[in-house]
């Protein structure tokens, strides 16, 4: 009996020791909001599609891929010669390595060039710029506030109002964010505007369009997309812009990326101290309105019901923030609406 008690005590202390070591190994996990969001990201981000092996374009701008490639071939080749991999497995591994090395991540300079080109497209397609510098200043202040607490606050964000009555909002890579005057007219308070702008900022901070672009068929065979490569391959740039335009303005991004932008958008608005339910309330309002049917913000996104449910079901950690400000009067004043009580 005494022996049994001793064993139980020893086991309990062993468990305590393991727990202590775990705490020691990662003591600040619970404070790591970025980590929390990364976990969300991992679970919701679609896996990149494998690219075609055939290389269409060879450029002089490529980094020394050959060396890296031969290095990897060497290791895989060594594995083959040692009998660790058979020939077939080695070939599959070599192909996988080549696929992974097909395109270096797109750098900020190139991202901004692509985003700038797409921004011209946004103005061309959606009514041009709405001329109200005072209102633009207000939108920029709200947008910059949420961008400053985003996961990518260190780039320049640019905001514009589109001269269309259809309620639309867009983001193009590199920091360009658009809302239409039609959308602003539907917004009820600043917390809702912050939620919408933060959703768009999240697309940029999480590089959603870039992820789509990096999987583009137009870039097969390009190992590094530099400005020089774009300049030398106008045909490729044509295809690239057409393809991303189609995704952003017609087909829409992957559904999971939209959900992710909703979650990050709510998080950024919350960090800035806004009532975090602003985005979900606006999605619900837009979903119920007849104007919502004319909105690219709706037609290229998952259904309002799905988005609302997902936000509602994943919002338990924001319950304490239900009394955060919505700043209705400030929005009414910026839009020159009669101030409601």
């Amino acid at each position: 009996m005494r022996n049994n008690n001793l064993k139980i005590s020893q086991f309990s202390f062993f468990c305590l020791g393991v727990f202590g070591l775990l705490v020691w190994a990662n003591p600040s996990y619970s404070f790591n909001l970025d980590g929390f969001l990364k976990e969300v990201e991992k679970s919701s981000r679609p896996q990149p599609q494998p690219k075609k092996e055939e290389l269409d374009i060879k450029t002089q701008e490529s980094p020394p891929q050959t060396q890296q490639s031969s290095g990897n071939d060497g290791i895989i080749g060594l594995g083959q010669s040692l009998g660790i991999f058979d020939k077939k497995t080695s070939n599959i591994l070599k192909q996988s390595v080549n696929t992974l090395q097909a395109l270096q991540p797109i750098a900020y300079k190139e991202e901004k060039a692509i985003g700038g080109r797409l921004a011209v497209e946004v103005f061309s397609r959606y009514g041009g710029a709405y001329d109200d510098p005072e209102l633009l200043r207000y939108v920029t202040l709200v947008g910059q506030a949420v961008a400053d607490v985003s996961s990518r606050p260190d780039i320049d964000y640019h905001f514009a109002i589109l001269n269309t009555e259809h309620p639309n909002a867009f983001a193009t890579p590199g920091g360009y964010v658009f809302v239409s005057i039609g959308l602003l007219r539907m917004i009820e308070n600043e917390a809702q505007l912050a939620g919408v702008l933060a959703h768009e900022v999240a697309h940029i901070s999480q590089k959603h369009a870039l992820q789509t672009l990096e999987r583009s068929r137009s870039l097969q065979g390009v190992s590094s997309l530099t400005l020089a490569v774009m300049d030398k391959n106008p045909g490729m740039l044509d295809k690239l812009i057409d393809e991303v335009s189609n995704v952003l303005f017609t087909k829409g991004l992957d559904k999971n990326l939209e959900f992710e932008a909703d979650k990050y958008g709510r998080e950024f608005a919350y960090r800035m101290g806004y009532y975090p339910g602003g985005l979900q309330n606006f999605i619900s309002k837009l979903g119920k309105s007849t104007e919502g049917g004319k909105s690219i913000f709706m037609s290229t996104h998952p259904s309002a019901g799905e988005r609302y449910s997902l936000l509602k079901n994943s919002g338990s950690r924001y319950q304490k923030a239900s009394l955060y400000p919505v700043l209705k009067k400030r929005l009414q004043s910026a839009l020159k609406r009669p101030i409601e009580p």
């Binding site: 700038g116 011209v120 497209e121 920029t140 360009y176």
Partner: peptide
């Protein structure tokens, strides 16, 4: 020109 200028104006607008 208007659309191109709109992007340039957007980039210049700062708070």
């Amino acid at each position: 020109d208007e659309s191109i200028q709109a992007v340039k104006n957007m980039e210049k607008f700062k708070v």
